[in-house]
Amino acid sequence: MTNDFAQITLDLSSEWTAFQRPGAPALYPEPLREEIDEVAGKVFTDVNNGVYQCGFASTQKAYEEAYDKLFARLDWLSERLTDQRYLVGDTITEADVRLFTTLARFDAVYHGHFKCNRQKLAEMPVLWAYARDLFQTPGFGDTIDFEQIKQHYYEVHLTINPTGIVPVGPDVSTWATPHHRERLCGRPFGDGTPPRPPPEPERVG
């Protein structure tokens, strides 16, 4: 076992299966691991980390390079997801989980706070539909607290936001609108089953 954040979830999926609940979906299936690693690696370098490279850039050149890399990768992801529901195979995998974490924060934080403002997620049709599809899937949206997300970024990063003012928007009700991604088929949990709702004290929204 490791304390490396990028490895922890892989270990939980591959080394700790004896402790998983019955019906837990396979997020890191052996036959797809090479492709999952490749896609997740690109997502981490250019998207997960890319938004931070934009937000904390200390020179115009560094910011613009990170900005270009971020949106080039988002365009690549949009193209990849045009005709397939999930990033790798026909089920949700580790690659989707890693991308979702950044997409969920994109309009609420990264678009304005980190200057990732070519487009909002809501203005990128494929990625917006894909993100809403995941958000409406058990285990995703029911774990997202948009107010806490905004409070953390806008109140903690005082070098970027010295006033500590937290924006009111965006309207998060749009995450519940129809996405129509089910037309691409796919089996969200594969041969597994959805997780139960979070315990009452942990519920958000």
Rank of each mutant, 00 (worst) to 15 (best):
M1I: 07
M1G: 14
T2E: 09
T17Q: 15
F19E: 14
R21L: 13
R21Y: 09
P22C: 05
P29N: 08
P31L: 07
P31G: 11
L32G: 02
R33F: 04
E35H: 12
G41S: 08
G41D: 05
K42L: 11
N49I: 00
N49Y: 01
G50V: 00
V51A: 09
V51C: 13
T59N: 05
T59K: 04
T59R: 04
Y63K: 13
E64C: 00
A66T: 01
Y67N: 10
L70D: 05
F71W: 15
F71N: 12
A72Y: 01
W76D: 15
L77T: 09
R80F: 06
T82M: 10
Q84C: 06
L87N: 07
V88P: 02
V88L: 04
G89C: 08
A95Y: 06
D96K: 05
V97D: 00
L99F: 07
L99N: 09
T101I: 07
F106E: 08
Y110T: 06
Y110S: 09
H111A: 14
G112K: 09
N117E: 09
N117C: 10
K120L: 14
P125T: 04
P125S: 09
A131R: 03
D133Y: 00
L134V: 03
F135P: 02
P138G: 11
D142K: 07
K150F: 04
K150V: 03
K150I: 03
Q151L: 02
Q151M: 04
Y154I: 01
V156Q: 13
H157V: 01
T159R: 10
N161F: 04
P162R: 10
I165D: 14
P167Y: 10
V168P: 00
W175G: 05
W175L: 13
L184K: 08
G186E: 04
P188V: 05
F189H: 03
G190H: 08
D191R: 11
P194D: 12
P195I: 02
P199D: 14
E200L: 12
P201I: 02
R203N: 11
R203E: 11
R203S: 11
